[in-house]
Design a binder for these strands. Structure first.
Length: 424
RNA sequence: GGAGAGGUGGCAGAGCGGUUGAAUGCGGCGGUCUUGAAAACCGCUUUACCCGUAAGGGUAACGGGGGUUCGAAUCCCUCCCUCUCCGCCA
């Protein structure tokens, strides 16, 4: 949620930045700010009446103490009208505040100046590409066929016990999964991130705070009996650790990392591109989360990108870094880099990481503040990024490293897997 | 699931109808002392919103919502959450 103060004071800048979202900025800002104006004038009026009422109450108290009962009764009689009008004003104010809040919630984050203009993923900027795209031997297969051939990935068993999009890993496939998680966690720990094991279900307040609700209501699994949501990413519980907190400045930055499974309904996305592990309802991910002072947040974003690059290099995967255009960015983000790896058998780029700076968009929703140099509370900036998302990393790893003898495990991972080759 | 206790400021913890926005302690900020630091002592220190160029003023908030009252952190109702004991389970 953007800060109201920002919209009021920098309407032009807000409008300019939001234009990149390809939305009707002027009418959105117009209604929001006019609601805000009504709200303020109503509050001013209400505050005045309440001040009068408070004064009367004090007078009555004094009169009663002084034993002047008749005068007190007379004063009481005068409160009735005031009370009625404050009641009315209060109702109007509540209504306006709710409307304003509802409008504010529908405004996406304002893209950073560096964010390219564009509507579709094709208009994202390729920042860099690194690594060599492997040439596969004749008869190379996509990962879902490899999984079946070698017997370590079973999409069909997932269908049986749960439904489509819930992969089952076994044997060396399961071990590879666990190895990657450990590898990513260790790397993040080395980089100074504190490991967190959070709950995998969150309440509505948490989902609202990071921006999943109300925007992406239908994308989360909802355990309705207890009104809890299965997390679509560890970002939600980990960032919410600091909801409603007021930190001392020296507590920042906060760097956290967590592994969790991620659950996504992916409603409406079916077809050829979602075969195998390309898009599933449950996958594993190691997520890094940072809370930063505003002046440091963009340096932190770059630092997170460097961290992820290090992981991809260690895994010997060809990758590219995209700067998302305004039309392809998530609702809550001010700037997002996507990292994609090349999966050679499918001959496509797969998104394995999304690294975003939310500026104060999330912290405003969750009241995550710190004391600035002047001791005044200010909203912190929040950032997060996948480091990394497993299912697609596994897909690329399997496809790119297949040989007639078996599937090669990158050197960096071998201490974790305990084997250097997946064999039949 | 049954019974009980409780939810107060950055934190801990008093208050239980009328200058209580809230004692006290810790923390934080400033000062005295000191070559410097610590200790000790003194002072200041909640947040959000509104009006105001500012100085300053106003309103709200003691888990959420509603009620009683001229007046509620304090009384009543309701919902949520936490803790303890019992049951059940890992």
């Amino acid at each position: 949620m953007l800060e109201l103060q920002f919209l009021r004071d920098h309407r032009e800048e807000a409008a300019e930045r939001l234009t990149k979202r390809n939305i009707d900025v002027q009418s959105l800002l117009g209604t929001t700010l006019s609601l805000d104006e009504q709200r303020r004038s109503t509050q001013t009026e209400l505050d005045g009446r309440l001040a009068e009422l408070n004064g009367l109450s004090r007078t009555i108290g004094d009169l009663l103490k002084a034993g002047r009962k008749d005068e007190a009764e007379a004063a009481k009689a005068r409160t009735a009208d005031l009370k009625a009008s404050t009641q009315q004003l209060k109702e109007r104010l509540d209504g306006l505040e709710k409307d304003l809040q509802d409008h504010l919630c529908t405004i996406p984050n304002a893209p950073n100046a560096k964010v390219p203009v564009g509507k579709t993923p094709e208009e994202n900027t390729v920042v860099l590409q690194e690594g060599t795209i492997p040439e596969l031997h004749a008869g190379a297969k996509p990962h879902w066929e490899l999984g079946e051939d070698y017997g370590f990935l079973h999409m069909d068993l997932g269908v049986k016990i749960t439904g489509a999009g819930f992969p089952v890993y076994s044997g060396q496939g399961a071990k590879l999964q666990r190895a990657l998680i450990s590898f990513f966690l260790d790397k993040a720990a080395d980089a100074g991130y504190r490991e967190i094991i959070p709950p995998h279900l969150v309440n509505g307040a948490s989902a609202f705070a990071t921006g999943q609700l109300p925007d992406k209501e239908g994308q989360m699994y909802h355990a309705t009996v207890d009104d809890l949501y299965l997390i679509p990413t560890a970002e939600v519980p980990i960032t919410n650790l600091y909801r409603d907190e007021l930190l001392e400045a020296d507590a920042l930055p906060v760097k956290m990392v967590g592994y969790t499974p991620c659950f996504r309904r992916e409603a409406g996305s079916y077809g050829a591109h979602v075969r195998g592990l390309n898009r599933v309802h449950q996958f594993d991910k190691v997520e890094i989360v940072r809370l930063e002072k505003p002046e440091n947040s963009y340096a932190a974003l770059e630092d997170m990108v460097e961290h992820v690059k290090g992981l991809l290099r260690a895994l010997e995967l060809p990758y590219r870094q995209l700067l998302l255009c305004g039309g392809d960015m998530g609702f809550a983000s001010a700037m997002t880099y996507d990292m994609e790896v090349y999966s050679a058998a499918q001959q496509r780029w797969l998104e394995v990481s999304s690294i975003s700076n939310f500026e104060t968009f999330q912290s405003n929703r969750m009241k995550l503040r710190y004391r600035g140099e002047d001791r005044k509370p200010r909203l912190a900036h929040t950032l997060n990024g996948s480091a990394l998302a497993l299912a697609r990393i596994v897909a690329a790893l399997l496809e790119n490293n297949q040989t007639p003898e078996g599937i090669r495990i990158p050197k960096a991972l071998q201490p974790y897997t305990g084997f250097s080759m997946i064999v039949k």
